[in-house]
Simulated scan of single mutants.
Amino acid sequence: MNTVFRNIRGDRTIWAITALLALLSFLPVYSASSNLVYVVGNGTTIGHLLKHGVILALGFAIIYTIHKIPYHYFRALSMIMLPITVILLLYTLAQGNTIGGANASRWIRVPIVGVTFQTSTFASVVLMAYVARYLSKIKDEKVRFAETLIPLWLPVFLILALILPANFSTAAILFSMVVVLTFLGGYPLKYLMAIIFTGAVGLTMFVLTAKAFPEAFPNRVDTWISRFESFMDDVPTEEDYQIERAKTAIATGSIVGKGAGKSVMKNLLPQSSSDFIFAIVVEEYGLAGGLLIMFLYLLLLFRIVIVAHKSATIFGKLLVIGVGLPIIFQALINMAVAVELFPVTGQTLPLISSGGTSVWMTCLAIGIILSVSKKREETEEQINNDNNPLAVLSEAL
């Protein structure tokens, strides 16, 4: 164990926040999984808890492995993985089957092990790394809009177009994050406004096409529209059912909550262990528990900004912001949905919600951030050694 801790590098606060969020997830997941067991009839609560533990253990193995890779390798890896990601998204979109009666065009099933993998979350990390690489490449050059269309925006819109038909919320979040990253990377604002306008036009054309040919995209556009109408108006939908129970869970949580495992709404919320787990956290641990979770995500955001600021290269700065901001943005959206500040999106709470791919991709992003911060530590150690007379003498001997 001591050997493992000696080999753990990078920002210690990020390591601690990640570990604490993972530990805090066990009780809510164990409690909320009773809905899957007693209402849906799927497995046992201990089985779901063990599965969650295995997923988190694999997630931390991903963090440890990725943070050992020098971050400049991700420049080349983003280019190599981009076409592979496009192929995976095409395959995922083409299969169009169902899992448990639900549209499964977001997932592919991995042979032999039999687990499902959500390709859009992996595509998000790869695309943000690719955009960071390109922006760092043109940082000191005069940007011409036409010259950026093929190397920058063609891959962005291609991946968004492959994600959009099955997962609007992920596509919208990814597009927003790309816009934020390009803005922070110094991409001209006038060109960026043209890209935003193009994206809005493309989305409108897709919606109109889907409404004109509903058999091509069954139920997806209607689902988006119903969720938006439900949020804006008083049109009763299934999402209203979930939101009302989520708000009831939060309201009855009071200051310190009902106590671990004593949630009532977990048996009435269909996605109590994933999409609406924040409501269960507040019901069982009160406002104090909810604020603690929010504080940890905001502290993680603060450390991400610190790591980006301390990075010695433009690519390192943009890479950290590119893969780190979506984690915080997704967390805030999940919490906003639970209190009806945002329409239902299906986004999980990073490291807290049960799930496989979402946890692993969050861990992949955190591993990349730690890889960047590790490089800073190694540089500082090298400088200290160079300035240490005993170290110089030892090196000479």
Results as ranks from 00 to 15, higher is better:
Asp11Val: 15
Asp11Asn: 15
Arg12Gln: 14
Arg12Gly: 05
Trp15Ala: 13
Ile17Gly: 01
Ala19Asn: 15
Leu20Phe: 14
Leu21Phe: 02
Leu21Met: 08
Leu23Pro: 08
Leu23Thr: 08
Leu23Tyr: 04
Leu24Phe: 09
Leu24Asn: 06
Leu24Val: 02
Leu24Gly: 10
Phe26Leu: 15
Phe26Arg: 11
Phe26Ile: 15
Leu27Met: 13
Pro28His: 03
Pro28Val: 13
Tyr30Val: 07
Tyr30Cys: 03
Ser31Asp: 01
Ser31Cys: 10
Ser31Val: 14
Ser31Gly: 01
Ala32Asp: 12
Ser33His: 12
Ser34Asp: 05
Ser34Lys: 11
Ser34Gln: 03
Val37Ser: 03
Val37Glu: 09
Val39Leu: 06
Val39Gln: 00
Val39Gly: 00
Val40Cys: 01
Val40Asp: 02
Gly41Ser: 11
Gly41Asp: 15
Asn42Thr: 08
Gly43Asp: 06
Ile46Ala: 05
Gly47His: 06
Lys51Glu: 07
Lys51Met: 06
His52Asp: 02
His52Gln: 04
Ile55Phe: 01
Ile55Ser: 01
Leu56Cys: 08
Ala57Phe: 08
Ile62Phe: 06
Ile62Asp: 04
Ile62Glu: 03
Ile63Met: 07
Tyr64His: 08
Tyr64Lys: 05
Tyr64Phe: 11
Thr65Lys: 04
His67Ile: 02
Lys68Val: 05
Ile69Gly: 08
His72Gly: 03
Tyr73Arg: 13
Arg75Tyr: 08
Leu77Thr: 02
Ser78His: 13
Leu82Gly: 12
Leu82Trp: 13
Leu82Ala: 09
Pro83Lys: 15
Pro83Asn: 09
Ile84Gly: 00
Thr85Cys: 11
Thr85Val: 01
Val86Asn: 06
Val86Tyr: 11
Ile87Leu: 09
Leu88Gln: 01
Leu90Met: 14
Tyr91Met: 14
Thr92His: 08
Thr92Trp: 06
Thr92Lys: 07
